[in-house]
Simulated assay, not measured.
Amino acid sequence: MLTRYDSATINRFSVDSQTGYLHVRNVPIARVGVFPYLKPDGSIQMEAKLPDDLLTDSAVESANSKPITDNHPNESVNINNSSKYAKGLTATNAHVDGDKLKVDMTIMDGSLIDEIKKGKQELSIGFQTDVEPVAGEYKGMKYDSVQRNIQINHVAVVARGRAGHTVRLTGDSAEMVQDQEPSKENQMETTTIRMDGADVTVAQADADKILKLDADNKANAKKIDELNAQIKALTAERDKLKGSADSANKQADEAKAKADSLEKQLADAEKKFTGDALDKAIADRMELIDQAKPFVGESADFTGKSAKEIKVEAINKADSIDVSDKSDYYIDVYFDSLKNRSNAGVVGYSGKEEKKTDSADNVPDRYHLA
């Protein structure tokens, strides 16, 4: 049986006025889905948590009354070491909510509670599982293996889990979408800009990028006008040469070829930079930027970067993996899995009988973060 870590976070908690204990309610610690695991050789293995495995009575009950630790211990938590590692406990109300496994938790250690209040608010769920090499597909996502006999051992509070700071202590796992209502401090600030004679409301952080796209569009329109002028001049030259002697036929053909080439450039430019195609290009790029922000940060500069470069940067920031030399298909599939995290969180894979962690904390190689 392999040991795994799933990452999650805390961002809604309450403190008991009498005891000072910290309570977190309805924490989603895992969900059904297909997720990438990093193998020791650097390759990716897609593993599935299927409903018949994750949502079983045994897996759900394994989340009850489990120790909460300050960072991951160097060993599984049990009766012999719980006094050393346990800083709190999960409740006894582990339950299934849709395709998620959720549970309440209470943290009783004063030092850890102080750290949480100062910003140490990410979780990493330690569990054991049998990974069977059974290929298949779940909701359009192909997988190489299936996690069976899932048993949760402990929940660690860490400075930074494998999912990074985009997943915080509300308890949303690194694999799942945030469920909670956005707080006021997380609500988007907007501003109004003017494009093509109309006022448009956009996210304040994206205003400069959209204005740049608008400026690029105007530059492209100017380029189209220049191409039209060149086509007109070359067409006139072609017509003139057509009336010349036979010796001018070659020049006429060359002028026609140039004109045809420019016409093709014009058609391509008009198709790419005008009308609905431009609107769709802007929408697609802004959607991609929004999907990448949870991994590269709100302050990241996407200016001049292609879609592929943005995806490669997001993957590198999230998992510290350089996939720039991989195929476009590989990068697209991997980035789709990251979107499930921001909808989400991911479990790292360490290979048979190894313990390895992808958290920022120093966890033995036989543990894994996801």
Rank of each mutant, 00 (worst) to 15 (best):
T201W: 04
A215C: 05
K117A: 11
D246P: 07
A360C: 02
G243E: 13
M188L: 08
G140A: 09
R160H: 03
A370W: 07
A300C: 00
D358V: 08
D216N: 12
Q180I: 06
S82M: 09
G164I: 04
L54S: 03
S82R: 14
K117P: 01
K120N: 00
M46S: 12
I193E: 02
N80Q: 09
N74W: 00
D332C: 08
I116V: 11
A207F: 00
G20M: 08
Q230A: 14
K39N: 09
I231Y: 03
L266R: 15
S62A: 12
S173V: 03
N220E: 14
T92I: 05
K326L: 05
D260M: 05
G275P: 07
E226C: 02
E313H: 06
S350I: 08
M176A: 08
D130G: 10
A344D: 12
D130P: 02
N316P: 03
K100E: 11
K352C: 01
G98L: 02
T9R: 08
S320I: 04
I193F: 00
I210N: 11
E309T: 15
M176S: 11
K317M: 10
A252S: 14
K250F: 03
K240V: 02
M286G: 00
T170Y: 05
I282R: 05
D260V: 07
G33A: 01
I210T: 10
S299P: 02
H72N: 11
L241F: 00
S62G: 15
R160S: 09
R238K: 12
N340E: 13
N64C: 11
D144H: 14
V146E: 05
L101T: 02
V77K: 12
I282V: 15
R285V: 00
T106R: 05
T192N: 10
N71W: 03
N362I: 15
E287K: 07
A300E: 11
D130E: 13
I224T: 05
S183A: 14
L54E: 00
I282N: 08
V77R: 06
P73C: 04
G275M: 06
S58E: 14
G243V: 05
N316V: 01
A207Q: 04
L241W: 01
A163I: 13
F35P: 00
R285F: 00
K120F: 01
E181T: 09
